[in-house]
């Protein structure tokens, strides 16, 4: 089996997962296109852009890291890739509407292009794909479950399609199937770990600071506080 076939299978898996999420949510009351409030759009933009701007120096460090580590560089870099995927699961968790992760990650990609990311225009496509796959993690549960496991799934799915343009641009397709598969697995684990460690503390911290008023997580947190007060 060639590496091209491997990524064709990966792409098919991505499409099948998207179709599965669509059919699972069809008729369950979850609309595919939900309108966002202006505040929600701004939250997605701010988180996406800040993550993107901070991602550019990280990408530079990553390139140096890859250079120092020779052929294992791509694998080593894969371990810290989760940091690049965080905007999707974070916005998905805060806004809790279909498309939030996709929009945030696309804005992340645009911000990276504008701030001089050394990986160029490829990050734009990568941003959209990782956001779309992050969204699927939440879509599998109808945008109704917000546990650490769902966040981990969202983070883990992010690199599934995103790795395809990167493999082409970095030319690591020649490194063989096991190398590419290992890189994908490391990225998925990294995405899950980063999502588990960072998303909830950041989202709850922001909600506590009062800057997420009007979002789903703020309502959720307010309900929890009222319930706790009633119990006390």
């Amino acid at each position: 089996m060639s590496v091209g076939l491997l990524y064709l299978i990966v792409a098919v898996i991505g499409i099948v997962l998207a179709a599965f999420a669509y059919y699972k949510n069809r008729g369950s009351g979850v609309a595919i296109f939900v309108s966002f409030t202006l505040l929600e759009i701004v939250i997605m933009a701010i988180i996406g852009v800040i993550n993107g701007v901070l991602g550019t120096p990280n990408a530079m460090v990553g390139r140096l890291f890859m250079t120092f580590s020779g052929s294992y560089g791509f694998l080593a870099f894969a371990a810290i890739c989760g940091g690049f995927y965080i905007a999707g699961p974070l916005c998905g968790y805060i806004i809790r509407k279909p498309g939030a992760a996709t929009i945030a990650e696309t804005m992340n990609g645009v911000a990276q292009v504008l701030s001089g990311n050394p990986n160029g225009i490829m990050v734009l496509a990568a941003g959209f794909l990782q956001g779309f796959m992050s969204d699927l993690g939440f879509a599998f549960y109808g945008y109704k479950r917000w546990t650490l496991a769902v966040l981990a799934l969202s983070g883990a799915l992010a690199p599934l399609l995103q790795q395809i343009p990167e493999v082409y641009f970095f030319g690591v397709g020649d490194m063989g199937i096991s190398y590419n598969l290992l890189a994908l697995i490391i990225r998925m684990v990294s995405g899950a770990v980063y999502a588990i460690i960072l998303v909830k503390p950041i989202a709850h911290g922001l909600a506590k600071a009062g800057v997420l008023r009007g979002t789903a997580i703020a309502k959720d947190q307010a309900d929890l506080r009222v319930a706790a007060q009633q119990r006390a």
Binding site: L38, V42, A45, V49, I50, M107, A111, L114
Partner: peptide, 17 residues
């Protein structure tokens, strides 16, 4: 236009980081 303006707001905030 709401998405474009939100992005504009975000870009305006970046230089102040």
């Amino acid at each position: 236009y709401r998405i474009a303006y939100a992005f504009f707001i975000a870009l305006r905030i970046v230089p102040t980081i």
